[in-house]
Design a protein around this nucleic acid. Structure first.
Lengths: 101, 101
DNA sequence: GCCTAGCGTAAGTATTAACTTACGGTAAGT
DNA sequence: ACTTACCGTAAGTTAATACTTACGCTAGGC
């Protein structure tokens, strides 16, 4: 199954990219994230849901808190997609163009 | 200069990703692209402008037509960004997580 | 010179998506 | 049990963006 479309959609928003950057520095609760960004906590929750559905983050309960963290497997999936992209489609395109010049 | 943000924004739309896929099979004029997709020609033009500003495509005049094609350099820039992402941020995050488990 | 083909852009509309407020539900402390 | 902290979601609003229609410009054929 290819869910890199939802992953690219998820990364197509600046706030969500900022959340990812933040989570790369370590796991974080929703409240902590909400304090770090100029949007409300529900807005953060909704962004996290998009990222979670795209398999870019995971969450777990820690007491009453809910801690989110990067999901490396999801990013590996995206990486595989890009590797194939660079390796197949893009280089074959470059070869095609250079041949014609 | 880092313009991978605009590149991720550009790739965050399904129609633009489809246009990119189409252009990977070879250069194409605006009219040809418009026939391949269920949107009007001006809509295609606007998508192409976004892709062009993100340095993902280039265009050139061929008679009265305007031919668009993939811009490998722009994609290389994105690739460099991701390589750094995989190599630095993601692996250091994974190390941090595994150390704690 | 005139006409047609092919596009870009401006302007306005419609659809999507990001956001806020309000509410309810669970977990731990007292 | 009651209270507080923390969060998800529903509902509604606002803002962003994808879209269409209308128009004007340039290139090439006649």
């Amino acid at each position: 199954m290819t869910y890199h479309d939802s992953q690219l959609d998820a990364l197509g928003d600046a706030t969500r990219r900022a959340i990812v950057d933040r989570l790369l520095r370590g796991p974080s609760s929703v409240g902590e994230l909400a304090e770090a960004f100029p949007v409300s906590r529900p807005a953060i929750s909704q962004h996290l849901r998009v990222l979670k559905e795209a398999r870019l983050v995971t969450d777990r309960a820690v007491g009453a808190k809910r801690v989110y963290q990067i999901h490396p497997q999801g990013f590996e999936h995206l990486r595989t997609y890009f590797e194939r992209f660079w390796g197949d489609a893009l280089t074959s395109f470059k070869a095609k163009v250079e041949k014609r010049s």
